[in-house]
């Protein structure tokens, strides 16, 4: 069997820099660490590409080698939402693995992201989670239902938001309102296991609007 050629983290970074120059949200960078007595080096890279070319960025990774998808993480970073997909290139190699994170951002006024489920079928559960936890829409997602949240968390509250759509109110009232939907027992008794539809996209409140 021919020996497989493994790209290094620097080469993967350079290929992204070359192909997506001008469409990068920030300069891609590498982090490397050494561990143990032999000082074995292992590396990871972070690439943030504009939303319009995000699917292309994912296909670019798949064209290097079929990566192992682990999970997508997401966070509220002020006026924008950021979603990062974490992959590993060469997961079957002996010490050549490169952890690759590719991510994109969307403004809160238009929280639509392209779904990667056409490229990587394994992303569907984690994309469902991103929809319900961040109040975003993954356009083209294969399964639009909620994943983890029960209907005790009403649509319109997104636990990882740090703005007015966050769960602070709900969390504060968990022990106050025994009869409300946040009571665990009530939730299970009439629980619909497959709530239809994904979360709607929250409308941005008018500037200076009343409470």
């Amino acid at each position: 069997m021919a020996k497989k050629k493994y790209l290094t983290a620097d080469e993967v970074l350079a290929s992204y820099n070359k192909r997506f120059k001008g469409d990068l949200i920030e300069e891609p960078y590498k982090k490397s660490f050494v561990n143990g007595v032999k000082k074995t080096r292992f590396e990871q890279i972070f690439v943030r590409v504009k939303r319009e070319r995000f699917i292309e960025a994912a296909r670019h990774l798949a064209s290097i080698d079929w990566p192992h998808h682990t999970v997508a993480s997401g966070s509220d970073i002020g006026d924008e939402i950021e979603i990062l997909y974490h992959f590993e290139l060469y997961p079957e190699s002996h010490g050549h693995g490169v952890t690759v994170t590719i991510g994109t951002r969307a403004p809160k006024s238009d929280p639509h992201f392209p779904s990667l489920s056409d490229v990587f079928p394994a992303v569907t559960p984690t994309e469902r989670e991103k929809q319900e936890f961040l109040g975003v829409a993954l356009d083209g997602i294969k399964d639009n239902r909620r994943l983890f949240l029960t209907h005790a968390v009403p649509v319109g509250i997104y636990p990882w938001r740090k703005d007015e759509f966050g769960p602070e109110d709900l969390v504060r009232k968990v022990h106050e309102d025994e009869s409300g939907g946040s009571d665990g027992l009530t939730a299970i008794a009439d629980y619909n296991p497959f709530p239809p539809g994904g979360p709607p996209i929250p409308k941005k409140k008018t500037e200076g609007g009343d409470a």
Binding site: N35, V37, T40, F42, E88, S93, H94, G95, G97
Partner: peptide
């Protein structure tokens, strides 16, 4: 992951 991306003493 212990072999493909070895951290800590796994690299040794």
């Amino acid at each position: 992951v212990r072999f493909s991306w070895p951290c800590a003493a796994y690299g040794d």
